[in-house]
Design a protein around this nucleic acid. Structure first.
Lengths: 149, 149
DNA sequence: GCGAGATAGATGTATATACATCTATAGGAG
DNA sequence: CTCCTATAGATGTATATACATCTATCTCGC
């Protein structure tokens, strides 16, 4: 590709969205044989790490509107990956991985690790660590103090 | 928000997508009074910087599938922001800002600059510069050598 | 217990996004 | 020129995403 066609975008939002698109295509491509999208893998991983959480808590973890999760969880529920029950607060949906969800997650792990590993080597350890730290910092900055920005 | 609800995600793709969602909400909120989405602002800015380009070139600039642009450009075309003509290669759509598009872009610029400025100060100059450089580097890494990753 | 305001999530709607496939056009082999 | 293949973009389809609004439920003051 002609390098001039990849200008440095002056907009932080545009830069992140562009990189997200590129990354998503890379991860989606790797996960496609499993019938799994990057977003869905992320939800499996989040539930695997967090155990049982409410839909709202999952949304906060991922900086995602909880009503967005309604649709994605519906799709994942069709595959039997998500188990849920009512919380003590009966408005809440308490979510966790169903057996089929754990199985799917375990199948996807080595594929994900391979993409991560290849990308990490291409980028270099320092850049990799910097980016994980910086992206987290920015998310935190916006979601915990967003109103004052 | 409870900090434990913003875990460091181990997945680079998930981290970028999460930060992109947070940033997009921030920029969208600022641009909403203008009836403009972050993606649409990005396209106005890209065309403002690049002049006349084909749909495919615009897609490469933004690491966006050119068929995705078909839909977004249709929406922006309804507002009269985009001018286009057939290229010498008659399969191509050559795109540029229409007068109304320039006007809209000029109206949006100060709003965008304010969000950028506030965020830059929150993040600090060094972090800001690092992130613009790193995100660009990663996009380049994937889009120019993606097949070998 | 009861009513008023707050909150969790569902639903309607619009945009963003990509891939598979299709059509029209280009460009080269002969 | 003709045919074959490659490419640009349009279209069908599915998912991702958020906001406005709605419903059910909670909580608090009384």
């Amino acid at each position: 590709m002609n390098p001039s066609l990849l200008p440095v975008l002056p907009c932080m939002c545009a830069s992140f969205r562009r990189t997200s698109r590129a990354l998503t295509q890379l991860y989606d491509q790797a996960l496609r044989p499993l019938g799994l999208r990057a977003t869905q893998f992320t939800i499996l991983q989040a539930l695997s790490l967090a155990g049982e959480v409410s839909q709202g808590q999952l949304g906060e973890m991922l900086a995602m509107d909880s009503t967005t999760l309604t649709r994605t969880l519906e799709i994942m529920g069709r595959h039997g990956w998500i188990a849920e029950r009512r919380g003590a607060d009966r408005r809440e949906r308490r979510l966790r991985l169903a057996k089929a969800g754990e199985t799917q997650f375990k199948r996807a792990l080595p594929v994900w690790e391979k993409v991560q590993s290849r990308l990490r080597h291409k980028m270099g350890e320092q850049t990799w660590k910097n980016l994980l730290q910086l992206t987290n910092q920015v998310t935190d900055l916006i979601t915990t103090q967003g109103d004052s920005i």
